[in-house]
């Protein structure tokens, strides 16, 4: 799980939905150590403007260490990235962070993956890993409309039970992804990645039913290596869980770094 800094070519870049791109980056041995929920920091372009790397969760890693990220072009960095074609190079720092914790053994209890919009891609990597363990997860995804639906084919390829919701009903269930979650009979374990509001709702659902749940948090980052303390997240300090040795906070809470202790946290810990 040691991160590396490496420059690698873009093997392929495809626009898969409005403003959403699927980027395939050239192989590196470090990426073979990546686990679901981890992320990479990409430096876009050779200049110092934009200055900071951009964090992207890993969608999946191929056997040779080539890997994919799916992102929405919505700011200065991602707009530049979207303009790059196959053959151009990007500099990668990764894999970084603490990803999803997989079940210790195969289980027949329902395992549910909840994705919202552009938070969906890391769940592909997770679904593949679960599938490799012989687990067929339930995958519930929410998007604004039919045009924004992504990753469907990946989840189908690994045999997941898939259900999709859209805000306007233009595809699948008309409503919220959390309503799909409520329809699943007795989930044993929930994994979620998506907008903060969705994560809060999923965490509330899980916490009130005492269902084990892991959420992947998103933050703007500078270093991605745990030094700048720009991406901290407020978490509960609950006995018997010991506080992080280097963490600071107030009565009952502590900061944890999204880039190091996260991006995946126990939903019962996060203070939304």
């Amino acid at each position: 799980m040691t991160a590396a800094e490496f420059t690698t070519p873009i093997l392929k870049q495809t626009r898969i939905a409005e403003d959403i791109y699927n980027l395939t980056l050239g192989p590196h041995p470090a990426m073979l150590t990546a686990t679901p929920g981890q992320f990479v920091q990409l430096a876009v372009g050779p200049t110092w403007d934009p200055l900071l790397r951009r964090p992207f969760s890993i969608c999946y890693v191929k056997d040779d260490g080539a890997f994919n990220i799916l992102y929405r072009a919505q700011g200065k960095g991602t707009a530049l990235l979207a303009h790059l074609c196959a053959g151009a190079s990007v500099n990668v720092l990764g894999p970084l962070g603490h990803g999803f914790t997989l079940p210790q053994a195969p289980t027949s209890d329902p395992i549910v993956l909840v994705g919202g919009g552009i938070g969906t891609p890391p769940l592909v990597f997770l679904a593949q890993s679960l599938s490799n363990m012989g687990i067929r997860p339930h995958v519930t995804l929410g998007f604004t409309n039919a045009d924004q639906v992504i990753c469907e084919e990946y989840f189908r390829a690994c045999g997941a039970h898939l259900s999709i919701a859209t805000d306007d009903g233009s595809y699948g269930y008309h409503g919220l992804v959390t309503e799909l979650l409520e329809q699943i009979n007795k989930p044993a374990l929930i994994y979620a990645c998506g907008p903060r509001g969705m994560l809060a709702a999923v965490a509330h659902f899980a916490n009130t039913r005492r269902i084990s749940c892991q959420v992947s948090m998103e933050e703007h980052m500078a270093c991605g290596m745990g030094v700048c303390l720009g991406c901290v997240c407020k978490t509960k300090v609950t006995a018997p869980a010991a506080p992080q040795p280097n963490a600071v906070g107030g009565p009952g809470w502590q900061w944890q770094r999204v880039c190091m202790e996260g991006p995946v946290f126990d939903a019962a810990e996060v203070i939304f």
């Binding site: 200055l51 900071l52 703007h220 303390l229 997240c233 600071v248 906070g249 900061w255």
Partner: peptide
């Protein structure tokens, strides 16, 4: 404990 979030923002050739 430092400051509340957000703590960083990118600016032209800087932060």
């Amino acid at each position: 404990t430092g400051n509340p979030m957000p703590r960083i923002v990118e600016t032209p050739a800087g932060m």
